[in-house]
Simulated scan of single mutants.
Amino acid sequence: MGYDGLLMKLPRGVKWFVATFVLVLSIGFYTGLLFVSETSTSSPMGIEENYLGNEEDEDAEVMKFKKGEREMLTIIHTHILSMSLIFFLLGGLVWLTKLPQKLKMFLTIEPFLSVILTFGGIYLMWSGILWMKYVVIFSGFLMTLTFTISALLVVYQLCRKSVTVN
């Protein structure tokens, strides 16, 4: 199938459309990370406190309570659905770039694994498996890294002109 490098061959207007989409998608993605940072859930202890509460910590600046099962299921459900759509759309664009097949495979499959590990890990940690907070941090970092690399590669190739060799 002739989709390898197709991104560079798109008409100028379509390239602008796709680039604008990736930019807005990235703003949304990084705003979510900013929210995570604001709720102090970017450290192992912060993640644990955010979902399991900190009622026993008398020195806590902000009192947090353990999330209920309904709230946890809502968080997990909405994040897995929305993140899978984000990575499906971005992954589709990655497959239209001119990159090695193995790199495309990694950049498009890994985020789905990280979504499951991150949000499944949050649920398992909430259920009592506390060491999952480290899996959550690692998979969240990897998910962010693959998003960033994918978005940059797509935008970079949208800016390049298609070179045809006769």
Rank of each mutant, 00 (worst) to 15 (best):
L103W: 08
S139V: 00
K102G: 07
A151F: 03
G140K: 01
G140D: 07
K104R: 03
H79G: 04
K102R: 07
N50T: 08
K66D: 04
N54W: 08
L81S: 15
V62L: 13
L99C: 11
F119N: 05
K67A: 08
I116G: 15
T148D: 04
F65E: 10
H79A: 13
F87D: 06
Q101M: 11
M63C: 08
N50E: 05
L85I: 03
H77V: 13
L130M: 13
L152V: 01
W95R: 13
S84V: 02
E56T: 14
S114Y: 08
A60I: 06
Y134K: 04
R70W: 15
I116W: 04
S84K: 10
E110T: 15
D57G: 15
M63P: 02
L81Y: 14
M143S: 03
G120R: 04
F119K: 01
Y134H: 12
L90H: 09
S84E: 05
P111T: 15
K64S: 05
L124N: 10
Y156G: 10
Y123A: 10
G121S: 11
T146P: 05
H77Y: 14
E71W: 14
F138Q: 02
F147R: 11
E69Q: 14
Y123C: 02
V155A: 14
L142H: 12
S139H: 04
L107Q: 11
T118D: 10
T108Q: 14
P100A: 12
S114L: 12
N54H: 02
I137P: 02
T144P: 07
G53T: 00
F106Y: 01
F147Y: 13
Y156I: 08
L96W: 04
T78A: 09
L153Y: 02
I122N: 09
S139C: 00
K133T: 01
H77P: 00
M143W: 12
F88G: 14
Q157D: 07
K66E: 05
I122D: 01
M125Q: 09
T144E: 03
L52S: 02
I129M: 11
L152D: 03
V155D: 02
W131K: 00
W95D: 02
M63T: 14
M143F: 13
L93F: 01
M72C: 00
L142Y: 14
E49L: 06
L52K: 09
D59H: 04
I109N: 15
G92S: 06
E55G: 15
Y51W: 09
L142M: 11
